[in-house]
Amino acid sequence: MNFFRLLGDLSHLASILILLHKIKTTRSCRGLSFKTQALYVAVFITRYLDLTYRWVSLYNFVMKLFFIGSSCATLYLMRYKYCPTHDPSIDTFKIEYLVGPCAILALIFNYKFSVSEVLWSFSIFLESVAILPQLFMLQRTGEAETITTHYLAALGIYRAFYIPNWIYRYFTEGVVDPIAIVAGIAQTGLYLDFFYVYFTKVMQGEKFELPA
């Protein structure tokens, strides 16, 4: 564990808490993509299968359980409790275009051709693009509630912190994980446009609005 990874993980944790807080306080999941949340459930379940056969640390164990649990809870809240506030007509990104290519990539790029390793690779690739339905929705509506943008910013910052973490690990431990690094950099790249608007507008107290 190093400083960057810890900050990244805490930012990830914060993003989920912000998301649940938004749903609870506004009693609505307006502006949130159900598809993105469903993809995160798939990401966490396929990646954390190792919970059942590998012990890493208490920290690792608790965080994995939290990510699986909270993502399922979010999906439940969106699907049942606050279902009427969710508008499927603007959540139209075709997730087949994400899941299919990620499955193919995972079959090609993995560290061992076994069920658990291919699923791990799949989860890494899928996570890198899971935010696209959400960003697509934002693009379509052209604006977002401030709390939703805080959620997205925390999620993007989490990925951004993983990059210095890998650089640090390369120099201190000699560890290089090309699949995680390439997918992680791509994933962070997807947030750049969003970050630009977030830091120039939302952080200055303005509403998140995309230029027409």
Binding site: N60, V176, I179, A180
Partner: peptide
């Protein structure tokens, strides 16, 4: 190989 990947990351 499997040893290359960072198993302790989330």
């Amino acid at each position: 190989t499997v040893d290359d990947r960072v198993k302790d990351e989330l």
